[in-house]
Amino acid sequence: MKKITTKEIKERLNQVTCLDDPLFETFSEDERKSVQQAISSTKKRLQKVEQLKQHFEEMKGFENKAYSAGFKYIAGIDEVGRGPLAGPVVAAAVILPSDFSLYEVNDSKQLSATKRDELFDKIKDNALAIGIGIMDQGVIDSVNIYEATKLAMKEAVSQLKVTPDCLLIDAMTLDLAIPQEKIIKGDARSISIACASIIAKVTRDKMMEDFDNVYPGYGFAKNAGYGTKEHLEGLDKNGVTPIHRKTFAPIKNMI
């Protein structure tokens, strides 16, 4: 009888979805090094999936608590862009269905740009509602970054097509007549806030990429407006642009 090839074994292992699949035992006595490596890599893949699922379930704790309290439309809210020297602060509000199960979701800072873009599309496809709030550098300079962040969050809530009955907010409280919970490091602890962080981050990064075309020489596409070496050198060489925050150092010292 013809011996099954390593390629065929790998193809079969690629279809395995649980660690107790009998295929592991079937191929365990195969002495070929390539087969044992395929078994090992498959187990590592499945272990990673299990870890993601476990983390995901832990991150649903705040949402599950809210559901148990009788809330139905829970909006997670987060912002991106409080620290940069240029560009807007962007907030997002996301309402997820109760059966949401996108296990790869995490705090946007823990994800690669490629993964964020991928999850951005999947979250948009699955969410019940998404709202985005943007406050530009003019607003930031007028009211300060903290207040501008609150305004962006409130705008994001107002843009939701489904009215939320509960808010989960990353490290903030808002003067809105909606029950809410302030969660420190919420983007790493709540699944809906994590989704909001991804939506806000990808939205703002795309805006900064567009600004890079309008105002070349500062590296906005790469640094998103943060004060990197390239950005500071661009300021020294090219001066202040209309999207720079005039109340932030070192810009305020250059005007």
Rank of each mutant, 00 (worst) to 15 (best):
C18A: 07
S108Q: 00
K154D: 02
I132G: 00
H231D: 06
Q36A: 03
Q110S: 09
I193T: 10
I183L: 09
T114Q: 12
K222I: 12
A188T: 02
M1P: 01
K115A: 12
K115R: 15
D125S: 11
A38E: 03
A171T: 14
T42F: 00
D210Q: 13
N253P: 01
K252L: 02
E11V: 12
E79S: 04
M207A: 11
S142A: 07
H231M: 11
F24M: 07
K150H: 08
K48L: 03
I39H: 00
K72W: 04
K185L: 02
A196W: 01
T228F: 04
S112T: 15
D21C: 14
D236F: 04
F27T: 09
L160I: 11
A93R: 10
L52Y: 12
D30A: 15
F211E: 11
N106C: 08
K109A: 12
L168A: 07
T6A: 04
K43V: 10
K185R: 15
R12N: 08
D187I: 00
S28L: 10
I184S: 09
L102H: 05
E233Y: 07
F100M: 01
L13E: 01
L111D: 03
L46A: 05
V90L: 12
C195A: 15
G70H: 08
T149I: 11
D30Y: 07
Q36N: 04
K185H: 12
K182T: 08
D170N: 08
S68N: 15
V202G: 01
N238E: 09
R82L: 03
P216D: 08
K246R: 13
A66L: 13
I184N: 04
S142N: 11
K43T: 07
T26F: 03
D175Y: 07
E118N: 14
M208P: 02
D205G: 15
P88Y: 06
E233G: 01
G219W: 02
D107E: 07
A92G: 10
L168N: 06
A127H: 06
N253L: 14
L168F: 05
L174Y: 06
V139H: 01
I183F: 08
K185T: 01
D175Q: 13
I74F: 05
G76N: 04
M1G: 14
S158W: 12
S197F: 01
Q54G: 09
D21V: 11
I178N: 05
V157Y: 00
E209Q: 14
